[in-house]
Design a protein around this nucleic acid. Structure first.
Lengths: 232, 232
DNA sequence: TTCGACACTTGATATTTGTCAAGCGGTGAA
DNA sequence: TTCACCGCTTGACAAATATCAAGTGTCGAA
């Protein structure tokens, strides 16, 4: 892997604490690759040969069963995915595909596991990362089980607004069909859900969303830090 | 904590690899407590003061929002819960209540975190445990997003049957209202779902389930190791 | 033994969500 | 420029799921 990428990978919480020696050893076996959009990087069920780090672009994690499919998460720079499978040396539970042109680091899982055994600092960093991931999924689970689709959309918009800087108008960061899948509904229903939020001051123009009456939307959405805060 | 409980706690994957010294240090600050049924042990949003270990009985992890509530998991001996919150020193995302009379070890979270910083073996054990938990939630997420309630029930029965030893008849291990909540449906719909599985050879008598035609049920349920296997 | 609480069931009905088919509008290639 | 494609929307309809209101049966306490 070209050394020019070392700093950005090294800056990740996962790698920042470990010794230079172990970091370089990990990077020696790694390589960087550019992928065009819509490439399936991994398929669920396959053995987990590499830990992946997204340097640029974005990656969709999804899963299929019995002819249906659903998006479970989107990975944006700079972060890793399929860490749990790598650690457990177990098959991937999700498939991954690039959404756009993406640059991705591939670190052999075996190297990650041996470094993890040898470097306590690295092991602890992995714990922190995994705990974060775990809590994110729990939140998603609560979102799905406790809220209707309209409520999920409303809260998603509030989260996205905050992520985009907090101003009333902002852009969705991926296409609506995928948003629908992430939120656990059909594209048709997402369309209707947007209309259902009009009475609360939400207007939509293509991918541009405007929240005209934030307090009103929040009264409806009832956002909750134990579901909607990404940090805690 | 009385030393009589040391061996069963020590036998947990989480604690089995660490040094005696660190283990005893952890146990010194811990204590064992007996709880009657239906006691709320922790409430979501509270700071995570203790890592919990269930020695006997069972514990329901649930969450509430806007007047609704849902069961997310059941913890059975011998295992821990709210590990992620303990590690991250973050508020609980779920509440916990005893389902029956239960004996539970409480280990101060601060002790867990400092031992985790000091003992690489312990840190690695935590990683393994967390990765396991993470993958379980991902599977639950896929179950919920990819399957109808009837399919979820069918697969649940097949999993439960396997857990109970594989014979055609077995008992549900908790009451139906809670099963409904775990499966993400109402008790009324669970009743109807059981009827809906009759054509596939499922009969119900109280908590006793009989699967008369397993291949037929499996043809309907399409169980998938990437959703239904607890081990991988 | 009787009574009441409670979990479970059942039926009728309402709401939510999905499906199918059609149309609209933008984009990119010929 | 034209046209085919594709994502999005809309409407009509169907299916899944929830809600409400009885009813049934069991179990434990008085």
């Amino acid at each position: 892997m070209p050394e020019q990428h070392y700093p950005e990978v090294r800056a990740l919480g996962l790698f920042s604490g470990m010794t230079d020696e172990n970091f370089f050893a990990l990077m020696r076996g790694a390589y960087v690759q550019n992928f065009p959009p819509q490439i399936e990087l991994i398929s669920e069920g396959e053995p987990s040969d590499f830990l992946h780090v997204v340097l640029s672009g974005s990656v969709d994690l999804f899963s299929q069963w019995n002819g249906r499919d659903t998006s479970l998460a989107t990975v944006r720079p700079i972060s890793t995915f399929i860490l749990a499978a790598t650690i457990k040396n177990a098959p991937y539970l999700m498939s991954a595909r690039t959404l756009e042109k993406s640059r991705i680091v591939l670190i052999p899982s075996q190297d990650v596991r041996s470094t993890f055994d040898a470097d306590g600092t690295f092991a602890r960093a992995i714990v922190t990362e995994l705990a974060q991931c775990y809590r994110s999924v729990i939140k998603a689970q609560k979102d799905l089980k406790l809220r209707s689709s309209l409520e999920r959309l409303a809260n998603y918009l509030l989260r996205q607004q905050k992520r985009a800087g907090g101003s009333a108008a902002f852009d969705l960061d991926f296409e609506k069909r995928r948003l629908a899948s992430v939120l656990g509904m059909t594209p048709e229903n997402l369309s209707r859900a947007f209309k259902g939020l009009q009475p609360y001051g939400v207007s939509v123009e293509g991918t541009r969303i405007t929240i005209n009456d934030q307090p009103d939307l929040e009264r409806f959405a009832k956002p909750n830090p134990l579901i909607d805060d990404s940090s805690t």
